[in-house]
Amino acid sequence: MKGYSNTEEHRRACEARQILAWPFEKRRPYLEMVGKRRGEAAQKELEMEVKRQYQLAKAAA
Rank of each mutant, 00 (worst) to 15 (best):
22 W>Y: 08
10 H>Q: 11
29 P>K: 05
52 R>T: 13
43 Q>E: 09
52 R>N: 15
55 Q>P: 05
22 W>P: 01
2 K>Q: 07
49 E>T: 14
25 E>T: 02
42 A>N: 04
29 P>C: 08
28 R>G: 06
43 Q>Y: 02
41 A>I: 03
35 G>I: 00
61 A>G: 11
27 R>L: 00
26 K>Q: 02
47 E>S: 08
35 G>S: 01
50 V>A: 10
54 Y>K: 10
1 M>H: 08
41 A>E: 08
16 A>M: 08
33 M>Y: 10
45 E>G: 12
57 A>T: 13
13 A>H: 13
6 N>F: 10
34 V>G: 02
27 R>Y: 01
19 I>S: 01
19 I>H: 00
19 I>A: 00
44 K>G: 06
19 I>K: 00
30 Y>S: 03
39 G>L: 01
35 G>N: 02
1 M>P: 06
58 K>A: 10
9 E>D: 14
34 V>D: 03
5 S>I: 12
50 V>L: 13
15 E>N: 10
11 R>K: 15
33 M>P: 00
32 E>A: 14
43 Q>L: 06
52 R>S: 13
7 T>H: 10
48 M>W: 11
48 M>H: 12
54 Y>G: 03
24 F>E: 07
55 Q>K: 15
15 E>V: 08
31 L>I: 04
29 P>D: 07
9 E>C: 11
54 Y>T: 10
52 R>C: 12
42 A>D: 07
31 L>R: 00
28 R>K: 12
21 A>Y: 00
56 L>V: 15
50 V>C: 11
34 V>K: 02
53 Q>R: 14
